[in-house]
Design a binder for these strands. Structure first.
Lengths: 187, 187
DNA sequence: TACAATATTTGACAATTGTCAAATAATAAA
DNA sequence: TTTATTATTTGACAATTGTCAAATATTGTA
């Protein structure tokens, strides 16, 4: 919870009493390694924050599993389209390690946003952050080759290799496992 | 202006008096073909809406010009990172045709957002729309080949080929002009 | 420890796309 | 209309990455 507060304050320092109310709608849960936070076809009701731990967002694409996102310690994540558009999620989410996860229900958030302009503002800034990250990732995928993408990931998240199977990382980077294996050794 | 109102209402129907105030901060300008709306290195102060016309957002990458976005008739566009983070823009924007452009200054928008919760909500929804589009485009770039990306563009914006030079479209799709030329003929 | 299951690496080859140069087509200017 | 300029297409070849199969390494479990 500590870390969640810190991350929120970095995005926008919500004044009281809105802050207390906002924090109160986050629920804490523990997920065992392998457990699902969200399954394909469910409407994703939550925005999540992983404290200590790691989760993977993925989906099925022609008999392959595509890793859409990896979130390690102290990061937000959610199934964007399902959460916002209230449609069944194409994405599934599971824990890669035993993880401490905080989650906030869509309806609770919307209710607070109605009541509190300041909370709406915080939420707007959270989405803005996601949008900027999305742009950066898009550019990386479009213009960097396998080696450059791997290096970028390494420098932004150095311990990811020790904690996440190579096949997931490769898919997240948009390359095959074999290519990633070659790229990270030799050359 | 008509079309701008329609598009805004689709995103969120802002009630009066907020709507009138919001509309009043949009300024209308005409740009001649080739004219710049924004040059590299400037801080991008505006969110834009092109009425009738076409614009191109691009940047320089190792002696090549990369087309980051193309906006035709009745669409929003802006230099996301510069607009939100108030840093000099890596992107430039110019008109591909004589264009009718509406623009809204960052500071005016922020002032209205402070005053009006409803306006903040509209803005939040506009960003959410951008985020979802960004996700869809990212997936297209990551998992579709040149031919599929071209087809997707054609179906979402059929007249783009008649109005935008092939080299810009190719760059926008993340492929070379030669590959696009081959993909759209034969095969 | 030894075995089984899973994960990663390696090799051979194919598919896709990029690069560079030249030819052709389309457009704008004289 | 003719010419000059710009845009698009085509060919030959190279680079990158993907695919499939097999080998090796790692991890978890009896």
């Amino acid at each position: 919870m500590e870390e969640l507060c810190i991350r929120l304050a970095q995005i926008y320092p919500l004044p009281e009493p809105a802050l207390s109310k906002f924090l109160s709608i986050w629920k804490s849960t523990s997920y065992e390694k392998g457990a699902h936070l969200l399954k394909t076809g469910q409407i994703s009701n939550y925005m999540y924050f992983v404290g200590k731990g790691a989760v993977r967002i993925y989906y099925q694409k022609e008999e392959k599993e595509i890793t859409e996102w990896l979130a390690l310690d102290n990061n937000f994540f959610f199934s964007i389209q399902s959460f916002f558009q209230r449609v069944p999620s194409r994405l599934a989410i599971h824990a890669l390690e035993n993880s401490e996860v905080f989650m906030m229900h869509h309806d609770d958030l919307m209710q607070l946003c109605e009541q509190s302009h300041e909370t709406e503002k915080l939420f707007r800034k959270m989405i803005t952050t996601s949008l900027i990250l999305s742009q950066i990732r898009m550019e990386s995928i479009q213009f960097e080759n396998a080696h450059q993408r791997y290096q970028r990931l390494l420098s932004s998240s150095p311990d990811i290799l020790r904690r996440v199977p190579l096949s997931y990382i490769a898919s997240f980077l948009g390359i095959t496992q074999e290519t990633l294996s070659r790229v990270r050794n030799a050359r």
